[in-house]
């Protein structure tokens, strides 16, 4: 992991899942993600790829079965109780649904006061200035403080949720599909707000989304997840010039407003839905859907047997892909004369 030194938050060899005993469900398999300070790490993938589970692991809600989560290079399990409390507050989560993430019975003021002072040590009025400041930072009027969540629209609620996350002066914000329940125009507002906050407060984001256009717009780095494994990783040109066939499929699946026909349409292999995460295919988990794999190239039997490892493609450009036959164009372009 070349990034580890400068990365503020990283998952190293993380495997995680839910439940225990015979009914347990493994979701993530040996995932490595390093989040650069001041950057935005996008986690993209389809439903069932383990995006949200990874968020739970990074935020400390779910303990990995194997592997470690490092904060500033330190294994969080090694921290003392008090240090862990402080560490937790440095990483904040903005969940997807702005309706279920605010307590319907608590005014905005109380919600923010709780975030500022979770143990309730100061008297109630002590946070007024800070609350006004927080509301201003998310472009909400100070009069919002006394109101209850149901009096706000979805976009405004999401602003309140962001203000609450900012209340603890976090370094990392994990945004889990924050705009997927919002209208296009409101979505733009929230995305702009997040970009603005990143600049002003020097925040680091982990940005989880299923929408590639948003990922490309928001992120500096990307990890593409498929069935719980990272299959490609690099800067955002991962999406413009993918090396992994799955990333290419994702890119070509975007509704194409220019009306050009999409190359993936020709293969028709995309019609296979993602495999059941509980019962992943052998070898490369993507091979049954791959248009360059054994379905089209008979000599590539290796894909169905041997799981590829996430290997550096371009050491200079920080590009890794887990594929036995990565798409050549990427490498040739970079190494061309």
């Amino acid at each position: 992991m070349t990034h580890t030194d400068e990365s503020v938050l990283s998952a190293v060899g993380v495997s995680a899942g839910y439940g225990s005993g015979p009914r347990s469900r493994s979701v993530l398999h040996d995932v490595n993600v390093a989040v650069r300070r001041g950057g935005t790490m996008g986690i993209v993938g389809e439903s069932g790829s383990g995006k949200s589970t990874l968020a739970q692991v990074l935020v400390g809600r779910l303990t990995p079965i194997r592997g470690v989560v490092r904060l500033d290079g330190t294994d969080v399990r090694r921290l003392s109780r008090r240090e862990r409390f402080a560490a937790r507050r440095r990483i904040q989560l903005v969940p997807q649904d702005p309706y279920s993430s605010l307590d319907p019975r608590m005014s905005v003021e109380r919600t923010l006061a709780e975030a500022i002072d979770p143990r309730g040590r100061l008297r109630a009025g002590a946070h007024r200035e800070r609350i006004t400041e927080l509301l201003e930072s998310v472009a909400l009027d100070g009069s919002a403080a006394k109101r209850l969540p149901h009096e706000f629209s979805g976009g405004q609620r999401q602003r309140i949720v962001i203000a609450r996350a900012l209340a603890v002066r976090p370094e990392v914000i994990i945004a889990d599909e924050v705009t997927s329940s919002l209208d296009t125009s409101v979505q733009a507002e929230i995305l702009e707000l997040l970009l603005d906050l990143r600049e002003r407060l020097g925040l680091t984001y982990v940005f989880i989304t299923h929408d590639l256009a948003i990922a490309q717009y928001m992120c500096t780095d990307l990890s593409v997840l498929y069935l719980g494994t990272v299959i490609e990783q690099g800067t955002t040109d991962v999406l413009t010039r993918p090396a992994h066939p799955y990333t290419e499929l994702l890119r070509d699946s975007r509704p194409d407003p220019s009306g050009r026909s999409t190359p993936a349409a020709a293969g028709g292999l995309a019609t296979e839905d993602a495999a059941d995460p509980a019962n992943p295919p052998s070898g490369c988990v993507f091979h049954p859907r791959c248009r360059y794999g054994p379905r089209t190239h008979e000599d590539r039997t290796r894909c169905a047997v041997e799981p590829p490892i996430l290997a550096d493609l371009l050491p200079s450009r920080e590009r890794r892909a887990a594929c036995h036959y990565p798409i050549k164009a990427v490498i040739q372009d970079e190494e061309g004369p």
């Binding site: 935020v59 400390g60 809600r61 409390f85 937790r88 507050r89 990483i91 904040q92 989560l93 969940p95 997807q96 649904d97 279920s100 993430s101 605010l102 307590d103 608590m106 709780e114 975030a115 979770p118 143990r119 309730g120 949720v161 609450r164 996350a165 209340a167 603890v168």
Partner: peptide, 20 residues
């Protein structure tokens, strides 16, 4: 609910989560 999850992440204690 997400708001309980977030409260825990903010460091609100177990007892306070229940009462509040």
């Amino acid at each position: 609910r997400d708001y309980v999850t977030v409260a825990r992440l903010l460091g609100v204690g177990r007892f306070r989560v229940v009462t509040r």
